[in-house]
Design a protein around this nucleic acid. Structure first.
Length: 564
RNA sequence: UCCCUGGUCGUCUAAUGGUAGGACAGCGGCCUUUGACGCCGUGAACAGUGGUUCGAAUCCAUUCCGGGGAGCCA
């Protein structure tokens, strides 16, 4: 009686999971699992963070452990409360709740005390070198660094100077507290790394209490240690920092969490550099951090992505140490899979072509019954008004149909979804030779779209009654960057790589009346067009829809392949 | 050049010395009142070279290729 797990429950194995399983088996940390998600509040979370969030929270819940949210707020010049709030909102939106909330700044006093301890044990010293001088004496990849002339100050002098640094006696940049490790280490991180720098800056939480701030390397391991973290999961670029992480917790003699590095998430056609995203916002090239074209969680949310789709995606991309790029198509696959289950169906026309049904009574309106979601019977049905003049999608008519074109063309018969079979009788053009409307006849026996005598049509197309349809603003999004790779373009000119078509709003879009009053966030599948989500800008007078993702389009592929 | 780290279908990933599997993408078909969804089928990979072994994607050596590293950023 083995129960079949759902696809999402079948967790792909990964090396971090294996480490944890082995640790539990070995009784390490008394079998405890405690992780943490440690963002710096200097920007909005993006899809890359989602992988880390899902990993940390997912591992904790899988092994009955805990996961903290901790803000790594050691650099006040970049951090803001706005960002901490958005990060909390986004983590919750993704579907996770932290066991405890901390800030690295909670530990500033403890960190200071430990720094004093390291000075007293002869492991740290105050250095008067400027940052340029430090750089010049750090050595190169092939040459060792040289010792700072201040390296052998007495403990008393170091204590005195460090105290005065804290007291605000020295201007920014004039001194640092450095760890005395090894200037000849092949690992630059071990060449007497800076622990504290002087920064007379207002901190979003500690205000003006401090004018010296601890560096990431000095802060992170100890913060993990204080919280009893067992597995400190971070991205690959911190591999070279691990010896230093280990050095601090060992020399302080405190709980030693294990740092494990995994590969950062990269998605094709997607910009995931926080700094570049910041630039887009600052330059006004997007409407904000939650612009639906942004890969931020708030942007994806507004665009219509669901947390479920994001979680399934993260669970399926794998965790390894390879620097890979996931195809955007995989994300879109899981998105469509989820949206297909939950989105209400409706009919909307992005690029309308007028159809007059010449044998249909001009004064008649019929309510046609349409199903709300074929994937979910409980979603029920609705009624869509039908009348003599309707709009169809311009793409659904060709005066000269190419091979394999099944839709409307002169003389052909198609089904109007949930309505009638119609046959194209005439193409009406203006003096310029442009098509202005199509005249069709309908078969009254085909009401509801049912084949009256068993005859087949090759195509079913969607429609909106001209007299009843509502004007909508449909915001059609495409990738933000022209190039196929995301982060490689030099920062200086990556903005020139922006896709001018990343947002297109067709001028005459129209939808069936039922969608007009939907609340922001409501998800629709406009049949045969794509998935759309009601934007917060929406009003009953002017409904606004964001195209979340297109439907797969086999015809577009055939059509393209047929082009000369 | 030095240190760290990694190379498995187009992409991502599994295998833990014993039949190279899955997902997405592709292709072909079935189904269809969405050219959607679904279903079925199919092509496609162990970076190279030596070695150890009855047996190597897996262990060893070496070559090649990629990623990261010299912030008082995280």
């Amino acid at each position: 009686m083995s129960s079949e797990g759902s696809p999402e429950a079948a967790r792909p194995s990964n090396f971090i999971r294996d480490i944890i399983i082995a640790d539990i088996a070995a009784g390490k940390n008394d079998g405890r699992v405690h992780t943490r998600f440690p963002p710096e509040p200097n920007g909005y979370l993006h899809i890359g963070h989602a992988k880390s969030i899902c990993l940390n929270f997912g591992l904790a819940s899988e092994f009955n452990g805990k996961c903290n949210l901790r803000f790594d707020d050691t650099n006040p010049s970049k951090e803001e409360t706005e960002f901490v709030n958005s990060i909390m909102e986004d983590v919750r939106w993704l579907g996770f709740e932290w066991d405890a909330l901390f800030y690295a700044s909670d530990y500033f006093d403890q960190l200071y005390a430990w720094a004093v301890q390291l000075i007293k044990s002869g492991n740290a010293y105050v250095c008067d070198l400027t940052s340029d001088q430090v750089r010049a004496t750090r050595g190169t990849t092939t040459e060792p660094g040289t010792a700072s002339p201040y390296r052998d100050r007495t403990i008393e002098e170091n204590l005195d100077l460090f105290g005065r640094m804290r007291a605000g006696e020295f201007p920014d940049g004039t001194r640092t507290l450095r760890t005395k490790i090894d200037m000849t280490s092949p690992n630059f991180n071990m060449r007497d790394p800076v622990m504290y720098r002087i920064l007379h800056a207002h901190h979003h939480r500690t205000g003006d209490k401090w004018c010296i701030y601890p560096m990431y390397d000095y802060t992170h391991g100890e913060s993990d240690s204080i919280e009893g973290i067992t597995h400190s999961i971070c991205t690959l670029e911190f591999e070279d920092h691990r010896p230093l992480y280990d050095w601090y917790v060992e020399n302080l003699g405190i709980h030693h969490p294990q740092q494990i590095e995994f590969d950062r998430l990269n998605v094709s056609n997607t910009l995931l550099s926080k700094r570049k995203l910041l630039l887009l916002v600052q330059k006004g090239l997007v409407s904000g951090w939650d612009d639906p074209r942004m890969p931020t969680l708030s942007g994806l949310r507004r665009r219509g992505y669901t947390p479920e789709a994001l979680r399934t995606f993260c669970a399926n991309v794998g965790v390894s140490k390879t620097n890979g790029v996931i195809e955007l198509g995989l994300l879109e696959h899981f998105l469509r899979e989820d949206l297909n289950k939950r989105a209400l169906r409706a009919m909307a026309i992005l690029d309308p072509l007028k159809i007059v049904i010449t044998n249909y009574p001009a004064d008649l309106t019929e309510p046609m019954e349409a199903v709300n979601n074929p994937a979910d019977e409980s979603a029920g049905t609705r009624t869509v008004p039908f009348s003599q003049v309707i709009y169809i999608e311009n793409d659904d008519f060709r005066e000269v149909p190419p091979k394999k074109y099944y839709r409307l063309s002169p003389g052909t018969e198609v089904r109007l979804r949930y309505a009638y079979f119609i046959t194209c009788q005439a193409v009406i053009k203006n003096e310029a030779g442009e098509i202005v409307e199509i005249h069709c006849t309908y078969d009254p026996a085909s009401r509801g779209g049912n084949s009256p005598d068993g005859r087949k049509v090759k195509s079913t197309i969607h429609w909106v009654s001209a007299a009843h349809g509502v004007q909508i603003e449909a915001r059609l999004y495409d990738q933000l960057l022209l190039e196929t790779t995301g982060d490689e373009t030099a920062d200086s000119d990556f903005t020139s790589q922006l896709n001018p078509q990343s947002l297109v709003i067709p001028p005459n879009a129209i939808a069936e009346p039922s969608v007009a009053t939907a609340a922001p966030g409501t998800k629709y599948q406009f049949e045969r067009v794509g998935y759309f989500t009601v934007d917060p800008d929406s009003t009953p007078e002017k409904p606004v829809f964001n195209r979340t993702v297109q439907l797969r389009d086999t015809w577009a592929k055939i059509d393209k392949a047929q082009q000369p």
